[in-house]
Design a binder for these strands. Structure first.
Lengths: 234, 234
DNA sequence: AGATTTTTTGAATCTAATTTAATTATTTGT
DNA sequence: ACAAATAATTAAATTAGATTCAAAAAATCT
């Protein structure tokens, strides 16, 4: 069995895992299920992946690659566009990514939480030892900053072309936008929620959210093109 | 054994759980550990709490109560203050809450993720059945909106007294701020991180983040009083 | 072909949550 | 004050599920 077949086996396991994690979530997915889905014995899963967390880290790696790909396609397509338009598209695409690849997005956010612990000697030992042993976790240490690198370039472009406030620092601004998007997902998800007896639909909130983002980036009240206007409030 | 003693037992278990979850995290904490810490047999834990998730939901309930308390103290103290000052204090206090009660904050955010699933018929069945059985989960359904109710009042006050943009909608604005704070924690945590070979200290980022928030809320570049100025960029 | 290494399996092990049956303590009715 | 009833508590048994292991099968090498 050459390198190719070996990699193919790993991919079979990975796509079985992705399918199941997406359908049922991490905890509800049993290693037995993965084995059955990948049509091989449970023991073989452990030949290719050190443990369940390692398998999940491989999925997380895939999630980062996917997200990086989405980001870089938007940047590439936007060479001639204004920075603000690129950011608008990024944000709009990110919402779609959250909706259609929720499991991937959760994996990315989960990894960020692990990194918070990892970056402190004081909390490093709170990380599940199975994660620290995971070879795929180590590979992620390299990949993790790729999406942000691209996002920062987008802000820089906007500052350069004058479509964003000149006083924005690209790193901080990009990370702040990403914070907002991550928090948006946690707080709202794709749900239409009823809060405090006031119905705020998911669309209403998203729209208001986008306008606030625009104020932040440009200091004006112009709505992003992508969002439909719903009354004058935001 | 009267109602009082029964409640006391529950509290003993709860505080044992809080201590252990804080120190080691949910998964690393075994029911055996909780029993030992609370000085009782493991079986008794199950007499008072339906299962481990139920115990965690009780901790989450406590977390919401704590957070609600923090919010309402700030509101009460700020009757005479400008809305913007109250928000500044809220944000500053929230950062402290994240740092000093990380486990509580994680519990709150985790609960939000569960609620995202819960609010959709399509995803409701992805919730761990143990959570759905948890009596403490049901209690949380009532409590969950309390912090936001208070936060929304703060924004309203600011809009009324003119210290915030007049066109802000309190609900959306508050939830957006909360999104930012939650995302900030996920992305950054309390760590000084090195990103893309550019060192951004936790303080630098926090400062830039706060300035961006101010632009959003007021449309000006005035820095919040609480953050030290570090150069002209944000 | 025979030896060696790699892949694969199914069964065994181990950990930790949950359940249960039995025991002890407390309350209630007389 | 005392038995019956009820509640609290324990320790042991059960179960689910991740991980390990020893042996079998397949592939590769010489």
């Amino acid at each position: 069995m050459g390198v190719y077949e070996r990699q193919q086996k790993e991919k079979d396991i990975l796509s079985a895992a992705i399918k199941l994690f997406t359908a049922k979530g991490y905890h509800a997915t049993k290693m037995d299920d993965v084995a059955k889905q990948a049509k091989m014995s449970k023991g073989l899963i452990y030949f290719y992946y050190k443990n369940k967390e390692d398998l999940y880290m491989a999925v997380t790696k895939k999630a980062y690659e996917e997200l990086t790909d989405v980001f870089s396609k938007i940047l590439a397509k936007g060479k001639a566009k204004k920075g603000i338009e690129i950011i608008d598209e990024l944000v709009e695409t990110y919402f779609v990514f959250i909706r259609e690849n929720t499991m991937y997005h959760d994996a990315v956010v989960n990894f960020m939480s692990i990194m918070n612990l990892y970056n402190h000697t004081a909390t490093k030992d709170k990380i599940d030892p199975l994660i620290m042993e995971s070879p795929n976790f180590l590979k992620l240490l390299d990949l993790q900053h790729e999406p942000a690198k691209i996002g920062i370039q987008m802000i820089s472009q906007g500052v350069r072309d004058g479509s964003l406030r000149p006083d924005l620092q690209p790193e901080i601004t990009f990370y702040t936008i990403w914070s907002m998007l991550i928090g948006f997902e946690k707080l709202n998800g794709p749900a239409d929620m009823e809060r405090n007896d006031i119905k705020i639909t998911s669309e209403t909130w998203k729209h208001g959210f986008l306008r606030l983002l625009h104020v932040m980036l440009r200091g004006s009240l112009a709505a992003p093109k992508t969002a439909a206007v719903q009354g004058s409030l935001f």
